[in-house]
Design a protein around this nucleic acid. Structure first.
Length: 714
RNA sequence: GGGCUCAUAGCUCAGCUGGUUAGAGCGUUACAUUGACAUUGUAAAGGUCAGAGGUUCGACUCCUCUUGAGCCCACCA
């Protein structure tokens, strides 16, 4: 054995051997326990970031339960990441001075498909380098035909149950990216903007958006506001930059009498609150801003101006005409931005597909309350409940091509929509006309992601059953029956609402079962200075570079060591180095044992108990016995940091520093058997965390061909 | 406005349902070591566990408040 452990010599070789031997595939006909985790599918198009390296927690669980005898499935997948990917692709196009509008839908889709296929393997090989024991034979992609078929079925079911509806509502629209977004995809930023006090006939109102005044269909005051009581219900004459107009004054509870002058203009087509006021008072919706971000024909001479320009021009004109009472230049408010391109989100009225969330949210809330699903750490339950108890309907259509196209056809004759489970209909379901046009929109990526646990397993079942028909009858059980609900859903807490909550809702709806029994949430990995890693800050660290430098085992161990579940951590080079040193320590314990040149059987703890002769040896057997219990308990309770810390402490500072030093002077065959067997046990305990070096030492010491076929010590 | 998390040795952090002298890594100091390992060992210094109050026989650990840091949600025209 070399004096120093070199991970580069072993990791890749070992992983490919494991994969070849099929160690990662669970025994589907097992009579024992089934254990399953679905990997949160990384973006197929992007390299892994440090958050993905945290999936080491899943590998720890899978390897642990596999060793304990469960048929343990860890199913990998890749996400098409609809908008994210199209966004990247469009940047790519822009570099070539092209845009998506230069291509027809089919061509564009094919181009993105090729683009993604080119990049796709990267992510998969990175997962391998991290040592993740994923069952690659069950790999799934969100755009696989069998997955798409399931997504369609769910959509159809939702539609048939009246939970999907199409409506003209205000949506969060990014005029730069040309698509609408869900509420979660809007980020807010505090800004200082002018607050304009505009004269409206006898009234004065305050607004930050004078350019939308062409879309005003009412003026509102609070019902109890004495100042304006006499106007309520009446129409007032106002002078505007475009001439004279009449507008209705209404009373609505939502108006805050203390804000500005207590008078608000109501623009139902361009403000979420105004839209609701408009619904209550039956107001007209008048759209004055187009999807291109420019003022439309209702803005008169301002038509064609971008919102910003229009605002400036209108303000100037109002000032000239004496319609501007005053301007408060220091008004601070928060405005919604596109999470991706950071342009201002424009609330625009648009026909979209929505999912009614309340009926879905209720069972999802119950599932946690009744303990059918447990969230670890528990403190995240509050966030979960808060989201579901205040949930709003989900806009699931996106105006992009990269994704699953919505299976809905519009009838040009009767204007009705025909929804199918994916099959192109020949006739309109209402009037029978053949003049059908498919919706050009695609699903929000998260709509398919929300179905991931059952979709992946159901898709596996169908392909498996095909094999079944051809071959034998042994394969009576499908993946879905065996592995659903999955045991654990492990992911970053930052997507608890985006993903986890939606999986629970859609999962229960589609399958009548919770999609998983436990939610395990890890924290964010930040840069060494404690700042969030982001491309724009330029502080992104590639996990694979560190794997290369310190070894996968060291990186894995560093990520779980010293950070309690759900807490963020700053990457630390000192820690990585420390963990790399730990691998070397292990290596040298192995080397010490090898150098004794004594052959020995590797005995189980129970056997050691009876053969150990020396008092001290007996004690160490007991110590390791209780270590086994301790580590098991820590893993069972998702306290991975404690398991790692304890193993580190014990192996290095107790076993190596004390026991080995003690035994050096009195080595004999009996003691040696105890020592080396105990080391084997420790390797087994460590294996879920550090799969490579434990395997290499196992082989070097001649315990077995592979640690993958050994079981958790008892 | 609401919520969550965190404040423990110089630095980075552990410390489960309250119970012996509060722990680790890195760093620091002294010594040792060509002997499994310098990616080493032994030893040492270093903390009134943010502050105040409360519950308790007993609190770093539970409760309340205060201060400070970070994050999330909502959103006011």
């Amino acid at each position: 054995m070399d004096k120093v452990y070199d991970h580069k010599k072993v990791e890749e070789k070992i992983y490919s051997e494991w994969e070849k031997k099929g160690y990662f595939a669970p025994e589907i006909n097992s009579k024992g326990r089934f254990y399953s985790i679905i990997l949160p599918p990384p973006n197929a198009n992007a390299p892994l970031h440090f958050g993905h390296a945290m999936y080491v927690i899943e590998d720890v669980l899978i390897r642990y339960h596999r060793m304990k005898g469960a048929a343990a499935l860890w199913l990998p997948g890749a996400d098409h990441a609809g908008f994210e990917t199209q966004f990247v692709f469009e940047k790519h196009l822009a570099n070539e001075r092209k845009s998506r509008f230069d291509f027809d839908r089919g061509t564009l889709y094919q181009m993105i498909w090729d683009f993604v296929q080119k990049n796709r393997g990267g992510m998969e090989s990175q997962l391998r380098k991290l040592g993740f024991s994923l069952d690659w034979s069950r790999m799934k992609f969100t755009l696989d035909p069998d997955i798409v078929a399931i997504v369609y079925k769910t959509f159809k079911k939702l539609y048939d149950d009246g939970l999907v509806y199409r409506a003209k509502r205000l949506v969060n629209y990014c005029t730069y990216d040309g698509t609408s977004f869900s509420d979660l995809e809007v980020v807010y930023e505090e800004r200082k903007d002018p607050l304009y006090y505009i004269k409206y006939g006898p009234l004065v109102l305050a607004t930050t958006r004078p350019e939308t005044k062409f879309g005003d269909t009412a003026v509102a005051v609070h019902p109890d506001d004495k100042r304006y009581k006499k106007y309520v219900g009446k129409e007032i004459d106002i002078q505007t930059v475009a001439g004279y107009a009449r507008i209705k004054v209404i009373a609505d509870e939502s108006v805050d009498p203390a804000f500005g002058t207590g008078v608000v203009k109501i623009t139902p087509a361009h403000d979420f609150n105004d839209f609701e006021v408009g619904q209550r008072h039956n107001l007209l919706m008048k759209q004055v801003i187009g999807f291109d971000g420019k003022m439309n024909k209702h803005a008169g001479k301002f038509e064609g101006l971008y919102v910003k320009q229009a605002r400036k021009t209108i303000v100037e004109e109002m000032q000239k005409k004496g319609l501007m009472e005053k301007i408060d230049e220091n008004y601070i408010h928060r405005i919604g931005l596109c999470y991706k391109c950071k342009n201002v989100i424009e609330p625009l009225p648009m026909e979209q597909w929505f999912v009614k969330m309340e009926p879905l949210a209720k069972p999802a809330i119950d599932a946690i309350r009744k303990g059918k699903i447990k969230i670890h750490p528990k403190s995240f339950e509050k966030i979960y409940f808060h989201f579901l108890e205040n949930i709003r309907d989900w806009n699931i259509s996106r105006q992009i091509v990269w994704g699953i196209r919505i299976p809905a056809w519009f009838c040009e004759k009767c204007l009705n929509w025909t929804v199918t489970d994916g099959i192109t209909p020949e006739n309109c379901s209402k009037c029978g006309s053949k003049k059908l046009v498919q919706d050009t929109d695609t699903f929000d990526t998260w709509f398919s992601s929300a179905q991931w646990p059952f979709a992946t397993l159901l898709a596996q079942s169908s392909s498996k059953s095909k094999i079944k028909n051809q071959k034998s009858k042994i394969e009576t059980s499908s993946d879905f029956e065996k592995f659903y609900p999955t045991t654990v859903m492990e992911t970053g807490y930052d997507i608890l609402r985006w993903w986890v909550a939606r999986m629970v809702m859609v999962g229960i709806y589609a399958t009548d079962k919770v999609p998983f029994k436990n939610v395990v949430l890890h924290g964010l990995v930040k840069d060494p200075l404690g700042k969030k890693m982001s491309k724009s800050k330029g502080n992104v660290i590639n996990p694979l570079e560190l794997v290369d430098q310190y070894g996968a085992d060291a990186v894995r161990f560093a990520l779980v060591y010293g950070t309690a579940l759900g807490n963020d951590q700053a990457l630390s080079y000192a820690k990585l180095q420390g963990m790399r040193n730990f691998t070397n320590k292990l290596w040298n314990i192995g080397r010490f044992i090898e150098m004794q040149q004594l052959t020995t059987d590797n005995l189980q703890l129970t056997e050691l108990n009876s053969i150990a002769k020396h008092e001290s040896d007996k004690e160490w057997v007991k110590k390791v016995e209780s270590l086994v219990l301790e580590i098991s308990r820590y893993i069972d309770s998702y306290q991975f940091n404690l398991a790692a810390e304890r193993l580190y402490e014990f192996i290095w500072h107790e076993f190596a520093d004390k026991y080995i030093e003690d035994i050096k002077n009195r080595i004999n065959e009996n003691s040696f058997t105890v020592l080396s067997s105990l080391f084997t046990v420790q390797l087994e305990l460590l294996h879920p965390f550090m799969p490579f070096i434990t395997e290499e030492l196992y082989r070097k010491l001649g315990v077995k061909d592979s640690i993958m076929i050994s079981s958790w010590p008892k």
